[in-house]
Design a protein around this nucleic acid. Structure first.
Lengths: 253, 253
DNA sequence: CCGGTTGATGAATCCCACC
DNA sequence: TGGTGGGATTCATCAACCG
């Protein structure tokens, strides 16, 4: 399997991706959430918004968290429109979101032309309890398809709830997803097909895609994270290549 | 603990409920979902939509599923506005919804004046897998408060994910919720407070409220279900009364 | 290798002091 | 007055550490 990693802005890079060239878009855009006032949301850095006061880890900040609500809607719609163009018929889009942006995300997905098919949940067992409230222990995966679902193209049965903790050690991104969850989600792409992630971050989607025998196309704006993603993708490709050689040659007995 | 059950239309009955007289609104409105076209939604009965073709059970149909989308938005907003009026400061609203109506429900909740606080998930482990798709195994609970949360009024820590199967035997309503889930959710109402459910159905919310030491006010349009709810509520009240007597008197030794 | 203990943490949230 | 930043709060979960 192979990967391509574009460095730069997601919209710009997407424009260069040919029509009907990917089979699934699986991505985790900046949520642009957190903070009650507009200035709190747009002025503070992602790290300031999302890491608790006593956290000792020193993960880098990430860009793209400074839009106001209207502009976020518009931008996400543009992004999903470009992704739609790049996707094959019956291809799927899986977009992570938190509770605040869930309605915006379903709007943007549909405005971009996708047929909204449902919501899956990622349940995080380690989340902060709050007095007098319901805990906010899930993030959500809004998903849709380009046109009809073709059940025979990719006859998989995927769960609607994924339970997994955020990686703790070896974590390199504030909002890093567990690779085991992503390995399940990439199954929505047919084997040998191509997965696109316009917000690659530390590259977990790509690692999962390569491990599961899918090709990967990513885009990352931040040089810091693009370097990390590149290293993780390269390592995964070498590992899977070794495993394939081993399988083809068979173990020595 | 005590209950009141109004028979009739939810909006009409709500108008008769005094201002600031309930501490939490917990309800499961008709989702008006299922069916891709307006005619599919409005033409078929709830029973045809929500039960599989070969289901043997004979659950009665329920009304309130024949609105188009705009009218559903408007109606749900009216309903939540009346509920808001009836609720005390810092009181909470918990509204069940499926994925299709989730954005509508968050819109209506906020339009009615509530402060949207989050989404909790009810996970149904037994749900139908579908080829080429992510399983739709959750329903959602959109929740908010009237004004600020007062953590000291009701110092509970509630989970954000509830896992339970729909009742199978003893099921009397098509969309009946598991009573153990409802018993957790009614904790959002302070002990001794009043829970309002404008769509009582078979009365599960009320049963849970009484069991957990909260008073209950319900509304149900269908006579068939109002009878069932009345019977279940009465039985629960007698059970809890016996338990209280027993506790007060102490067991004979 | 197993079992019990310790300690850190969370795409939070809110209040309050300060500018 | 309005925006900004700092800090207190909270506990189920899980990695790390021991014995």
């Amino acid at each position: 399997m192979s990967y391509t990693l574009h460095r730069g802005d997601a919209l710009t890079a997407l424009a260069g991706i040919p029509d009907n060239s990917v089979d699934a878009v699986i991505t985790d855009p900046p949520y642009n959430s957190g903070g009650r006032t507009s200035s709190e949301r747009t002025g503070r850095s992602a790290r300031a918004k999302y890491t608790s006061g006593d956290a000792e880890h020193d993960l880098a900040n990430f860009p793209g968290e400074n839009r106001d609500q209207r502009s976020y809607d518009f931008w996400l719609t543009l992004l999903l429109t470009e992704s739609y163009r790049a996707t094959t018929e019956s291809g799927a889009a899986l977009v992570f979101t938190d509770w605040r942006q869930l309605p915006t995300t379903t709007d943007a997905l549909q405005a971009a032309g996708w047929t909204w098919r449902g919501i899956a949940s990622w349940h995080k067992p380690v989340s902060r309890p709050q007095k007098g409230r319901l805990k906010q222990s899930c993030e959500y995966i809004v998903w849709g398809t380009k046109g009809p679902v073709d059940p025979d193209r990719n006859p998989v049965y995927l769960p609607g709830l994924y339970t997994a903790s955020q990686p703790r050690k070896d974590r390199v991104h504030i909002t890093q997803k567990p690779v085991e969850v992503m390995q399940e989600l990439v199954q929505i792409c047919p084997p040998g097909g191509t997965v696109l992630d316009p917000f690659t971050g530390s590259g977990t989607t790509g690692v999962a895609a390569l491990r599961e025998g899918r090709k990967f196309v990513g885009v990352e704006l931040s040089d810091h994270y693009a370097d990390i993603a590149e290293a993780r993708l390269l390592e995964t490709m070498q590992q899977t290549a070794r495993r394939e050689d081993f399988t083809l040659a068979g173990p020595e007995e």
